[in-house]
């Protein structure tokens, strides 16, 4: 029992962590928290199921197409919901615009795809029991993603430009960095990461339009715990959340485990609004 709690806890935790990284990737270049993060995860599952089961494509092309579609949706989000409100960031209009785009995505999926959970194919057909691919695949993808991002941010010029923009947007612009293009690129990247989360977790979560708001919330918790923009914090927070949730599931039952998660989330947030590894608030006057 313990083994299966750990296996499923790590698996969903990995998906939450990836959604958390999706939030962070968008936040880093734009200072915007976007409600589309969870929807991208949902779409990863839906597109995956669409391309493989409905259209009959092999796994790899289906994965590439899924990533491309979600990256495109990321870019559209940037153009429609983020760029127009960046000038007045302090009014927090992005909360409304990204919420609107997230709802458009969700409702469109419900109407055009299905309002019922649809099956997601086995990808590699490896493992069984607690070693089933549906448990270890999200974890592996999460680890690979974080390694890939570390490589990007530490070893490539584009990655360091992301870091620079995240730290001091004004100085980055003054230096002549193509800030707008980099922001678009980061939204595309976030789209792909969200898609990976949904694709890797597809066998657990299925292709279901209502996963969007769920992933939005559970993917946000690791960010809130780990501190905005902190990917390592998000991974730790994600795994902790996944384990806690699955343990609560087992101990008190599915519905009250959500209550437990929510209560814990509120308590932690109120105690440490900046997250466990967060930065200080900006000056106001």
């Amino acid at each position: 029992m313990l083994a299966s709690i750990i296996a499923s806890g790590l698996a969903v935790g990995a998906v939450y962590a990836l959604i958390g990284i999706t939030y962070n990737t968008m936040f880093a270049t734009s200072r915007v928290m976007s409600f589309t993060a969870g929807q991208l995860g949902m779409l990863g599952g839906v597109f995956g199921s669409l391309f493989t089961l409905r259209l009959g494509l092999p796994i790899l092309p289906a994965l590439v197409l899924t990533l491309a579609c979600c990256a495109l949706i990321g870019v559209v989000t940037e153009i429609v919901a983020v760029r127009p409100v960046l000038k007045s960031l302090d009014q927090h209009l992005y909360v409304l615009t990204t919420l609107a785009v997230a709802l458009l995505i969700q409702h469109m999926t419900a109407m055009e795809w299905s309002t019922e959970p649809q099956p997601f194919p086995r990808l590699l057909d490896l493992g069984s029991g607690i070693w089933d691919e549906k448990y270890w695949l999200p974890v592996a993808v999460c680890i690979l993603t974080i390694l890939g991002l570390e490589y990007l941010y530490r070893r490539t010029l584009v990655g360091r430009a992301f870091v620079a923009i995240a730290e001091d947007n004004f100085a980055a612009r003054a230096l002549g960095l193509p800030e707008r293009n980099l922001r678009i690129a980061s939204y595309a990247l976030a789209g792909a990461i969200g898609a990976l989360a949904g694709f890797a977790g597809g066998q657990l979560l299925l292709a279901f339009f209502a996963n969007g708001p769920l992933l939005n919330f559970y993917g946000f918790i690791p960010v809130a715990l780990g501190g905005l923009g902190n990917n390592r914090g998000a991974v730790i927070g994600g795994f902790l959340l996944g384990l806690f949730q699955q343990a609560a599931n087992f101990l008190v039952g599915g519905i009250f485990s959500s209550v437990a998660v929510f209560t814990l989330f509120i308590i932690v947030l109120l105690a440490a609004p900046q997250g466990m590894f967060g930065a200080q608030a900006a000056r106001r006057v």
Binding site: V95, P213, L269
Partner: peptide, 28 residues
């Protein structure tokens, strides 16, 4: 209450989470 301490997006999220769990409690 969270609005007294949390920033906009965080607060929006907590109200959203609250709405979800109230529905789940009514079910359970």
């Amino acid at each position: 209450l969270p609005a007294l301490r949390l920033r906009t997006f965080y607060f929006a999220m907590t109200t959203l989470g609250f709405a979800t769990i109230v529905t789940q409690i009514t079910l359970a």
